[in-house]
């Protein structure tokens, strides 16, 4: 019976593979935004490495936001969402499948690209490692929380902007601890506390967000 969520997960990955431009937009947005700062601020390594954690995390956050509107929009407009809602399956599980697929398609590439961008900011190796770790632990929370916003704004005009207003305030803790972890390792402190809190935040959203998203989807479709 739980095969259904695997099916939805595979379908979403397959759709992303057939429409690679969507993935590329997110990735290039992250690349360009993160590359603009060194160009605007100047090549001073000390300045760059001190702003790096915040800038890279904000860029990752905005890149993730960009793709949120697409999470349920096509399912909503072609009727697949109706079929998901009336399927004899637990809806939160289907939501988790969709969020997981979204994270693999839009979150994971950003995580993998981050160390290369980090080099532009003259980040030392151990800080690069912490950057990747913090993104790896933090971005699932971004996708999960973002799903609630995406579900709530389904079918609303100008939903892109509305999602930003709904979701960005909820991203603040992730941003603080994510950037904090990188900054801590730059100053020779252990990033462990920050990383643990990020992981805790992701786990908490994994437990709560699918239910909230499922409820929001039911409201939006009605």
């Amino acid at each position: 019976m739980n095969r259904a969520w695997v099916t939805i997960f595979k379908r979403d990955i397959l759709l992303a593979l057939r429409r690679r431009s969507d993935v590329a937009t997110t990735l290039f947005f992250f690349l360009i935004v993160a590359s603009l700062f060194p160009l605007g601020i100047g090549p001073e390594p000390a300045v760059l490495s001190s702003i790096a954690p915040g800038v890279l995390w904000v860029a990752a956050l905005l890149a993730g936001m960009l793709s949120l509107t697409r999470m349920f929009a096509s399912d909503f407009s072609d009727g697949s969402l109706e079929q998901m809602l009336i399927a004899p399956q637990p809806l939160p599980m289907l939501v988790i499948a969709k969020v997981l697929a979204h994270w693999i398609v839009c979150g994971l590439p950003v995580v993998l690209l981050a160390p290369m961008i980090g080099l532009q900011y003259a980040l030392p190796n151990d800080a690069l490692l912490v950057l990747v770790l913090s993104l790896l632990l933090g971005t699932p929370a971004l996708s999960l929380i973002g799903a609630i916003g995406a579900a709530l704004t389904l079918g609303v005009r100008g939903s892109g902007l509305l999602i930003a207003l709904l979701v960005l305030p909820l991203y603040i803790p992730v941003l603080i601890f994510g950037a904090g972890a990188v900054a801590a390792s730059q100053h020779g402190m252990s990033p462990e506390a920050h990383l643990s809190l990020l992981a805790a935040f992701s786990l908490l959203s994994l437990v709560l967000a699918p239910f909230a998203t499922a409820a929001a989807l039911r409201i939006s479709v009605e």
């Binding site: 099916t7 379908r11 397959l14 072609d78 079929q83 399927a87």
Partner: peptide, 20 residues
């Protein structure tokens, strides 16, 4: 309830699996 980028066979198999 069909995905534009999938073939009819793929679409129907997904919909069937979804309906258990």
């Amino acid at each position: 309830g069909l995905k534009e980028d999938l073939s009819p066979i793929e679409n129907l198999q997904v919909n069937m699996r979804l309906a258990a």
